[in-house]
Design a binder for these strands. Structure first.
Length: 812
DNA sequence: AGCACGCCGACT
DNA sequence: GTCGGCGTGCTC
C-alpha cells in the first residue's frame, strides 16, 4: 500500500495522509499537485510532499481524487525551502503553500447542485423557494450556490438547499475547474514549400482579387518580417476581412495557428551595453568574486550613487553567460522604476516581473515562464522567492535593510532577506545583499566573516558625497531666529538653493497635519473607537483619522468633554510642514509626497514628472521620499524635526533614523557633488547626529553594535515576539499570564519579557498583549525554540484559550 | 482555515 | 415558541 503526505492550503499543523490508488502509482511524484477530498464535501488542491508505505493507525486515509500534473510543479529546492520556513518561523506549511501559490494554480472547488434523476418530485409539498430552485435545475443541469443568490434570498438558500437534499431531490456536484486559461492569439503563416508553384497559385486566385491581394500581402510581410504574423494586423486597415482569409485557409494556402499571449508587455526596445566599471568598482567586483570563491555570500555596502547597480549588472551578465538564472529582489516594485528601466534596456524579453499586485493571470504567466526557463532574470518582491526556479545561480537582495522585506501584517511572517540566503543555498546559488545602509544584523554577519564584506565608499565618477550640517534649533528659537519649525539659517539656505534653481527635499516622517487635537481647558484628546491610539488630524480633509484601522471621524468643534471651544493641535505632521513651507517660500512650487497624497491614481507618476521637469521646487515628504527619487537637480535636503525620528519606541529607532537620513541624503547632489543636508534638532549633541556628520559608517555601526550588545538585542540574541489577541481584555490577560507561566517551566526566566500590553493596546477592537523572548544564539537556540513550540502546544490544549489568536514573529 | 454542531438572546 | 448569534471541535 502506498500513501502520500499532502500539503493543504490550510492553516493546520503538518501534512495529511492520503492513499495512492493503483492508477496513480506509477505517475505520482513529490512536488505534483493532487486533488483531495477534505472534511465533509470540500475538495482542495494539495502538493505531494512525500510518498511512503506506512499505513496510519489512528485513522482511515481517503483516496487521492486525481493527479493534476504530469511532472512536478514545485521543485525539490522549493519544498525544502517551505519546510525550512515553516520550522524556522514557527508557522504551518499550509500557510506557506497558500502564500507561495497564485490562487488560480490552486484549483477551486465550488459547490454545484444537480437534480437527482432517480427521485420523483411531488410539487405540492414544496415551498416557493424550493420550486424556484428545481425549476432552475430543469433549465440548467448544474447551478452553483452563487447563482442561486439571484432568485432566492441569501438567508434562505442554505435552508432550501438543505431541505431538498434531505428529500434527496437534488445532489451536490463538485465541479472543479482551473481558473487560469492562457490567452491565445491567432497567427498566420504560408508554407514556403508551396511557393514553387507561385504562378499557379496566383492564377487560381484571379477570380478572387481580394484573396489574391491578401495572399500577396501576407507573403510579403512574412518574407520581410522575421517573426510570427499576428492575424489581426491584416484586418487593421479595413481592406481585407475574415471571409477573404477563410477562402485562403480553405484552399490550404495560408495556415492559421495559435500562440499563448503574454499578458505582461515586455520591452522590445534597444539593448544597451554596459558602461565600463570604474577602478573602485573593479576592485569591489574582484572582492565579490573572492567572496563567492570562498563559498560566502556578499554584503555589498555601497554609498548612494556608488554604482551598486552597475556591479549587479556585471554579476547578472556573468551568471546568465554561465547558463544560470537570476532573482533580483526589491523591497517594493512601485518605487524603483529606474532600476527596472535599466535592466529592461539590457535584457528585454528575458526579464520578468513578479509581485503581489499582479493579477492572478499575470502571476501564472510568470510562473509558467520561470518554470519553462524562458525568464532569465526575475525582478520581484518577496513573493517571488516562491517561483519554480529551475537553475537559479544568483540572488540579489537590493536595499537589504528595508523593512518591507519583513512586513508584520502579512502572514506567514518571514524575513525575505534571510529566506533568500537559505533559498540560494538550496539552489547552490550565490547571493548579494546590497545597501547603502546595511542592517546592523547583516553588517555584524559580514564583520564576523559569515558574509563577505565589500565596501564601495565613493560615488561613481568621483562625485563628492553630500555634506551634513547640524542646526541647533533650540538656540535658533531662543534667539528668535526661527519661523515655525524652520530656523532662519535653514530658511536662508533653502532660499539660496531656490535662487540657484536647484530643488529641495524636506523630510518629515509623520503623516497628517497634527498628531493630536487637544482641548486646552481639560486636556481631552480623541481616541479611535476601535484602537488604543490617538486620532491624527488631517487638515486637507478636515477629519480625524486612525492610522491603524483607517477609522475616520469629524474634527470636533467643541470639546466633547467640557464643551470648551479652546481646541489646539499638538505634534506636527507633514501637512503642517507643507503649509509652513509654502508660507515661508511664497513663490516656490511646493509638492507633498506621502501615503495620503499618493493614493490617487497616477499621483506618483505626476509628481515624478513635476520633479523631473523642475516644476516642483520643494518636495515635502515622509520616508517615502527617500526611495527612488534619483534626480540630478536636487541639492538640498532638510530635516527640520530630526528628533522626531528618534522618538519611536523601538530598539531599532536609531538604526532606522540613520538609514532614513542617509537614504534621503543620497538624493542630494548626485551629479554636482554639492549636496547639502541640514539636520535641525533640539539635541545637536546626540551621538547619532554627531556620528552621521562624521560620515564614518564603520564608527556608526560600532556604536549600534555596542548598544545592542549592552542591552541584549539582535544580533547578540535571537528575538521572538509572541502576540496574543482577543476581544476581551481580562481573558486575554489571563491567557497571556498562563502562556508566560508555561514558558517559565522550560526557559530561563531572564529570557522571558512580559506579558505586557502591546505598545498599541487595541487595534480594530482586538486587545493585544505580547511576550518577548530573548533567546541565546548558537546551539541552545534550537533547543529553546523547541521548548517554545511545546509551550505553545500546551497552551492550545486549554479549551478556554482556543479563541485567543496567537502570532509568533521570529527575528521580527 | 472552513464548516458543522450545540447552547443562549430578540423577534414573528 | 423559533431564528440565529458565535463558542467548540474536527478535518487525513
Amino acid at each position: 500500500m502506498t500513501f502520500a503526505q499532502i500539503i493543504l492550503p490550510l492553516n493546520l499543523k503538518g501534512t495529511f495522509t492520503y492513499k495512492v490508488s493503483e492508477e496513480f502509482l506509477s505517475k505520482i511524484e513529490v512536488g505534483m499537485r493532487v486533488l483531495v477530498p477534505f472534511g465533509g464535501k470540500k475538495i482542495y488542491t494539495g502538493i505531494v510532499a512525500e510518498i511512503h508505505h506506512n499505513e496510519p493507525e489512528t485513522f482511515l486515509p481517503k483516496d487521492i481524487h486525481s493527479l493534476l500534473d504530469a511532472e512536478p510543479i514545485v521543485p525539490k529546492q522549493q519544498l525544502k525551502f517551505w519546510n525550512w520556513l515553516s520550522e524556522y518561523y514557527l508557522c504551518n506549511i499550509g500557510e506557506i503553500y497558500r502564500f507561495a501559490f497564485p490562487s488560480s494554480l490552486k484549483l477551486e472547488s465550488e459547490t454545484y447542485l444537480k437534480r437527482n434523476p432517480n427521485e420523483e418530485i411531488n410539487w405540492e409539498v414544496l415551498d416557493a423557494n424550493e420550486i424556484y430552485l428545481l425549476q432552475a435545475l430543469e433549465v440548467k443541469s448544474l447551478v452553483s450556490l452563487s447563482e442561486i443568490e439571484a432568485f432566492i434570498p441569501k438567508k434562505e438558500i442554505v435552508k432550501t438547499v438543505k431541505a431538498l437534499i434531505d428529500e434527496q431531490l437534488i445532489l451536490i456536484d463538485e465541479k472543479i475547474y482551473e481558473k487560469y486559461k492562457a490567452k491565445e492569439v491567432a497567427y498566420l503563416k504560408i508554407d514556403e514549400n508551396i511557393l514553387g508553384n507561385l504562378s499557379e497559385i496566383l492564377q487560381s486566385l484571379t477570380k478572387a482579387k481580394k484573396q489574391k491581394d491578401l495572399f500577396l500581402t501576407i507573403l510579403e510581410v512574412q518574407q520581410t518580417q522575421n517573426q510570427p504574423l499576428r492575424k489581426s494586423q491584416f484586418f487593421e486597415n479595413g481592406v481585407f476581412n475574415a471571409s477573404h482569409l477563410r477562402g485562403l485557409v480553405e484552399k490550404n494556402l495560408v495556415q492559421e495557428y495559435y500562440l499563448q499571449k503574454d499578458r505582461i508587455e515586455t520591452y522590445e526596445g534597444e539593448i544597451e551595453n554596459l558602461e565600463k566599471l570604474s577602478e573602485v568598482q573593479e576592485k569591489a567586483l574582484t572582492e565579490i568574486n573572492e567572496g563567492f570563491c570562498e563559498g560566502k555570500n556578499v554584503l555589498l555596502h555601497g554609498v548612494t550613487s556608488s554604482g551598486k547597480t552597475h556591479l549587479y549588472l556585471e554579476k547578472i551578465e556573468e551568471t546568465i553567460a554561465n547558463g544560470k538564472n537570476v532573482l533580483f529582489l526589491l523591497p517594493e516594485i512601485a518605487l524603483t522604476k529606474q532600476i527596472i528601466q535599466r535592466l529592461e534596456k539590457k535584457y528585454g524579453k528575458q526579464l520578468g516581473f513578479y509581485h503581489q499586485k499582479l493579477t492572478d493571470f499575470e502571476k501564472v504567466e510568470v510562473w509558467r515562464k520561470v518554470k519553462n526557463n524562458e525568464i532569465k532574470i526575475l525582478i520581484g518582491t518577496r513573493s517571488s522567492l516562491f517561483l519554480p526556479f529551475q537553475n537559479l545561480g544568483l540572488i540579489i537582495i537590493d536595499e537589504e535593510h528595508d523593512a518591507a522585506y519583513k512586513p508584520r501584517e502579512v502572514k506567514p511572517f518571514f524575513n525575505a532577506k534571510d529566506a533568500a540566503l537559505v533559498l540560494a543555498n538550496y539552489y547552490q546559488a550565490k547571493a548579494i545583499l546590497g545597501s547603502a545602509t546595511p542592517s546592523v544584523e547583516s553588517y555584524y554577519a559580514a564583520k564576523n566573516g559569515k558574509l563577505k564584506y565589500v565596501f564601495l565608499g565613493e560615488r561613481f565618477g568621483e562625485v563628492a558625497l553630500p555634506k551634513y550640517e547640524i542646526i541647533n534649533f533650540k538656540e535658533a528659537q531662543e534667539s528668535k531666529l526661527s519661523v515655525g519649525h524652520f530656523s532662519q539659517y535653514l530658511i536662508d539656505k533653502i532660499s539660496e538653493n531656490l535662487e540657484h534653481k536647484k530643488q529641495t527635499i524636506i523630510l518629515h516622517n509623520r503623516r497628517g497635519y497634527a498628531n493630536v487635537v487637544e482641548c486646552e481647558s481639560c486636556g481631552h484628546v480623541t481616541y479611535c473607537s476601535n484602537c488604543d491610539v490617538v486620532m491624527t488630524y488631517h487638515k486637507s480633509t478636515n477629519e480625524l483619522k486612525c492610522h491603524y484601522c483607517g477609522h475616520k471621524a469629524q474634527k470636533p468643534k467643541i470639546c466633547p468633554k467640557c464643551q470648551s471651544t479652546n481646541l489646539n493641535t499638538r505634534g506636527i505632521g507633514i501637512e503642517q510642514i507643507e503649509e509652513e513651507t509654502q508660507k515661508i517660500f511664497k513663490e516656490a512650487q511646493v509638492e507633498r509626497m506621502d501615503v495620503d497624497s499618493m493614493r490617487k491614481k497616477f499621483a506618483y507618476e505626476k509628481l515624478y514628472e513635476k520633479i523631473e521637469s523642475g516644476e516642483a521646487e520643494i518636495v515635502v515628504g515622509t520616508q517615502m521620499i527617500s526611495k527612488g527619487l534619483d534626480f540630478d537637480n536636487i541639492e538640498l535636503v532638510a530635516i527640520p524635526k530630526a528628533d522626531a525620528l528618534l522618538y519611536v519606541q523601538d530598539f531599532r529607532a536609531e538604526e532606522r533614523a540613520y538609514q532614513l537620513i542617509t537614504q534621503v541624503s543620497g538624493r542630494a547632489g548626485r551629479n554636482s557633488g554639492k549636496g547639502k543636508i541640514y539636520i535641525q534638532t533640539y539635541n545637536p549633541y546626540h551621538p547619532l547626529f554627531e556620528l552621521i556628520k562624521e560620515e564614518n559608517s564603520a564608527k556608526i555601526y560600532e556604536h549600534f553594535l555596542k548598544e545592542r550588545e549592552q542591552f541584549l538585542y539582535p544580533p547578540f540574541v535571537k528575538l521572538v515576539l509572541i502576540e496574543l489577541k482577543h476581544r476581551k481584555e481580562e481573558k486575554l490577560q489571563r491567557a497571556s499570564q498562563f502562556l508566560s507561566s508555561v514558558l517559565q517551566k522550560y526557559l530561563p526566566l531572564p529570557c522571558i519579557l512580559g506579558p505586557e500590553k502591546a505598545p498599541i493596546g487595541k487595534i480594530n477592537l482586538l486587545y493585544q498583549y505580547q511576550i518577548l523572548l530573548k533567546l541565546p544564539r548558537g546551539k541552545k537556540y534550537q533547543e529553546y525554540k523547541d521548548y517554545l513550540l511545546k509551550s505553545l502546544e500546551e497552551f492550545q490544549e486549554i479549551t478556554a484559550y482556543k479563541s485567543i489568536k496567537i502570532d509568533t514573529f521570529v527575528d521580527f
